[in-house]
Simulated scan of single mutants.
Amino acid sequence: MIQGDYFDQLMSALNQSAIVSITDTKGKIVFANENFCSLSGYSLPELLGKDHRMLSSSYHKPDFFQNMWETLKKGQVWTGEILNRRKNGEYCWVQSTISAIVNEKNEVVNYVAIRFDITQMKQTQLLLAESSRLASLGEMASGIAHEINNPLTIILGRLTIAQKKLERNDPPAIVTKELQTIERTVFRISNIINGLKKLAREGSFDPTEEFDMVQLVNESHDLYAQKLTASEVKFSFDQTEPIYVNAKPLQISQVILNLVNNSIDAIESLPERWINIEVTKQGDRCLISVIDSGTGIPAAIASKVMNPFFTTKDPGKGTGLGLSLSKKMVEDSNGRFFYDATKKNTTFTIDLELGQAKDKVA
């Protein structure tokens, strides 16, 4: 009797604090507690006999749930974060732990899912990410203004020259040459502004897509080119052959911007200042490495650099969120982000899945 009371108390505590559901082996809901009904917006009769696809937000790729079911069928416990869609259309994040219930023959008869609402936590993470992202853009602002002002000066100068040549009735070919210079310069300004507009948009909910990583690195360069020049940092990126990856381009661009910003700050007092970006294939993976002239990070610091709010920068120069959020952004693209301690110079690497167009010719 005492054991029964204890069990009832445990179940009561669980039902009060957690979101609980039980399904059959085909994933059909056979039980849902009040918290589940409250969070989803569906009544118990509406839920019974249905599967969790009725809560689908379409945020996760099909292989996300395929991997979940493969884990469960192996008899293992699955844990992960899921974005659901309530009956009223609102979205909510849950931290889920799902495990099998077996009978006396060790056969799976049901699956039980214990969930906790982490929507507020995820919203806080997004706010922190937004703060860090805007801080990075703020660091680039003066440099971007310079990058735009320089070509505008070129345009004005070339227009003046073209006007004088027209007044002198110079041959059309000579005037056309000036106009072509103006056209190229306008395209440069357009690329800078488009790059800035992309980064200014919040992209954590973007789906993964296939894109050329080499092109993305080249397009990102204009956003930090002036800061490189002002800090007298040599920059090199020699890859020209397209390499396609599956990821979220906006977030990967943000990570590269964060890494270059960090490198510029880290090597500002060194006599030799350079930054290289390398994009290489390794099996079915693409490795993007940002390498600078620093001689590495001490092991005691390297073990902490991915922790939120950890920073070695002077007060006012960093939030300590850059690397931890960069890691999260890369993981959102099903990738890996790490400090490579095996390299002679300071190296951070992004590891992404190669795209299907990996053999495509530009």
Rank of each mutant, 00 (worst) to 15 (best):
K50R: 14
D5P: 00
Y42C: 04
D238R: 13
A100S: 15
I277R: 09
P172M: 11
G203S: 14
D265Y: 12
T349R: 01
G27C: 08
D117W: 06
S204N: 05
A135C: 03
R285D: 11
P172A: 10
K343E: 13
L128R: 11
I148H: 02
C37M: 03
P151W: 04
E278T: 13
S326W: 07
E104P: 01
F205L: 11
N258I: 05
R188N: 12
G294N: 05
A100F: 11
V109H: 06
Q16M: 07
D170M: 04
A266Q: 08
V102S: 10
D51N: 15
I82V: 15
H221I: 08
G316N: 10
L216G: 01
L156M: 04
Y91T: 06
C92H: 12
K87L: 10
C286G: 01
E130Y: 09
N84M: 09
G4H: 06
V77W: 09
M140I: 00
H52F: 07
G203E: 15
G41C: 11
N84V: 04
V77A: 03
L196K: 06
K73E: 13
L83C: 08
E139R: 15
T79I: 11
A362G: 13
I301F: 02
I161G: 00
S40Y: 08
V305A: 04
S40I: 12
G27N: 03
S236A: 14
N218Y: 02
P249E: 12
R53M: 05
N15W: 00
S131V: 05
L228H: 00
I182P: 00
V102C: 09
G138S: 07
S99A: 10
A162N: 07
M329V: 04
E202G: 12
K248R: 15
K358Q: 12
L127D: 14
D332W: 02
K87D: 07
L321D: 00
H146M: 05
T229I: 14
T349K: 01
V186I: 14
S142D: 11
L166K: 08
Y111F: 08
N106K: 15
S303L: 04
A135N: 06
Q180T: 08
N258C: 09
E331R: 11
